[in-house]
Amino acid sequence: MNDELKDLYQEIIIEHSKRPRNYRSQESARSAHGYNPLCGDQVEIFVKMNDGRVEDVSFQGSGCAISTASASVMTEALKGKTEAEAEELFGHFHDLVTSGEESDELDLGKLAVFGGVSEFPARVKCATLCWHTLKAAIAGKDQPVTTE
């Protein structure tokens, strides 16, 4: 297989897309909808904050492998993080999927598997939709988030 494709569709990504973690709704959680009009991907993020930290975060939706795996891995990465830490993580993740460069300051952990997305500019929004939606959920915004 073409190396760039191999980088994009890493085993972890395929596995998370087929068996997403934290794929559930939550009662009495803050939530927001995200929508990518280009491909029709939809995601709903549910987040429960406790004492300024993410106590629980989950998602539901339908989308491509990249968007599903990104939401799945994101929910794993966020537990226990403060809003500011989540924001910082998104900043570094965004740099990773747009430039392919991993941060020196912060260990992205499993999120680093999305580095291959940078070779596919048309797919960056697939990877970032859940993060934009998370921000809206934490901020308690009612308006659906779109990638356009």
């Binding site: 760039e4 494709l5 994009l8 569709y9 491909c39 029709g40 989308g63 492998a65 990249i66 797919r123």
Partner: peptide, 23 residues
Amino acid sequence: DGIHPHDVGTILDRNGVAVRAGH
């Protein structure tokens, strides 16, 4: 089965095949 059209479109493109994926 089990593969979103957007992923299909990307992999086809890397095989030189231009198609449309979406609604």
